[in-house]
C-alpha cells in the first residue's frame, strides 16, 4: 500500500543544508500497521510529512496504492490518505465549530450528504450529536483528538498516518484513543503508519516497525520480536531498555 524507496529529505540549501532523512526505504502492505520509531531528530516525522505531501523537498520514490507520487498530490490521494497530528490543541481551527471542521473535507472532496456523514463520524469516535456545534475550546484534549480522528476518517481513507497521536494526552485518555484507533482499524481495514517514540504503543498497535536514528533506518523488525526483547541492533536494544523505566546503576 505504501512503498517508500530511497527517500531523502534535505532542508535548506547550499552549505547549510541539513539532511534530515537519508535514503530510507520501507514497504507497508495493505491493511498492515507499521511504526516508525525513533527519538527527536531521527527524521521519523519528516518521513511522514514527505509521504503526506506536506513537505515537497524530497527525492527518491514514494508509491501509495501502487501510484507514483510527485510533489503535488491529486484529489484522489487526499481522499485515500489522511493524517492525525500530535497536538490536539493546534490541529483544530480555533474559530470553527466541530460541525464546520467535519463539513469542510466533505465539501472539498464533493462527497455530498454531509449531514449524515457528520453524524456518523461523531458517532464512530464515541461523541454524540451534543458535540456537533461546539468550538474546540469547549472540548478536552481527548475529545479534540477524537474530532481530529473523525475529520480524518470522514473521507473514508484507506491509509491513516498517525504522528504521535497520543503523546500530548493523559494516560487514561491515551488508552481510550488507542482503543478507538484499534477498533476503527479493524472495522475499516485501514493501513496505519504510526510515528512514535513509545515502544509500548507500537507493541499494542502494530505488526512491524522500523527504528530510525539520525535520518536512517537502523533496523526493521516484527513486533513479536520486540515483545520478546529480541533486537539485532544495539540502538534498538538501548531504546527497549530505556523504555522500561529507570535502572539504578550503583556508581562507584
Amino acid at each position: 500500500m505504501i512503498d517508500v524507496r530511497d527517500l531523502t529529505v534535505r532542508f535548506g540549501g547550499g552549505r547549510s543544508a541539513v539532511t534530515a532523512v537519508a535514503g530510507v526505504s520501507f514497504r507497508v502492505a495493505e491493511g498492515e500497521s507499521f511504526a516508525l520509531v525513533g527519538e527527536s531528530g531521527s527524521g521519523k516525522s519528516t518521513v511522514l510529512r514527505a509521504i503526506s505531501g506536506l513537505n515537497p523537498d524530497w527525492t527518491g520514490r514514494v508509491l501509495v496504492g501502487g501510484a507514483e507520487q510527485g510533489r503535488r498530490r491529486t484529489a484522489a490521494f487526499h481522499k485515500a490518505v489522511q493524517m492525525v497530528f500530535q497536538d490536539p490543541y493546534g490541529s483544530l481551527h480555533p474559530r470553527h465549530t466541530v460541525d464546520r471542521i467535519l463539513a469542510e473535507p466533505v465539501a472539498i472532496q464533493r462527497l455530498g450528504d454531509a449531514e449524515r456523514r457528520i453524524e456518523r463520524a461523531l458517532e464512530e469516535v464515541g461523541l454524540g450529536g451534543g458535540f456537533r456545534f461546539r468550538y474546540p475550546h469547549q472540548l478536552s484534549g481527548g475529545q479534540r483528538q477524537r474530532i481530529a480522528i473523525a475529520r480524518a476518517l470522514i473521507l473514508e481513507p484507506r491509509v491513516l498516518l498517525l504522528d504521535e497521536p497520543t503523546s500530548a494526552l493523559d494516560l487514561s485518555v491515551q488508552a481510550e484513543i488507542l482503543n478507538l484507533l484499534r477498533r476503527l482499524r479493524a472495522e475499516r481495514g485501514l493501513t496505519l503508519l504510526l510515528v512514535t517514540h513509545n515502544l509500548a504503543i507500537v507493541s499494542l498497535m502494530c505488526e512491524r516497525l522500523a527504528v530510525m536514528q539520525a535520518g536512517r533506518i537502523v533496523e526493521t523488525m516484527d513486533v513479536a520480536d520486540l515483545r520478546r526483547g529480541e533486537a539485532a541492533d544495539g540502538y534498538t536494544r538501548h531504546l527497549i531498555e530505556a523504555s522500561r523505566g529507570y535502572r539504578r546503576v550503583t556508581s562507584a
Binding site: L171, S172, Q174, A175, E176, L178, N179, R182, R183, N198, L199, A200, I201, S203, L204, M205, L226, R227, R228, G229, I240, S243, R244
Partner: peptide, 20 residues
C-alpha cells in the same frame, strides 16, 4: 489501579486497554 492497567506494555499481547 486503573492508571496502571491503562498503560500499554511492550511485552503484552495486543488487546484493548482497560479504560479508567
Amino acid at each position: 489501579r486503573g492508571l496502571l492497567a491503562a498503560r500499554p506494555r511492550i511485552e503484552a499481547e495486543p488487546a484493548d486497554l482497560p479504560v479508567l
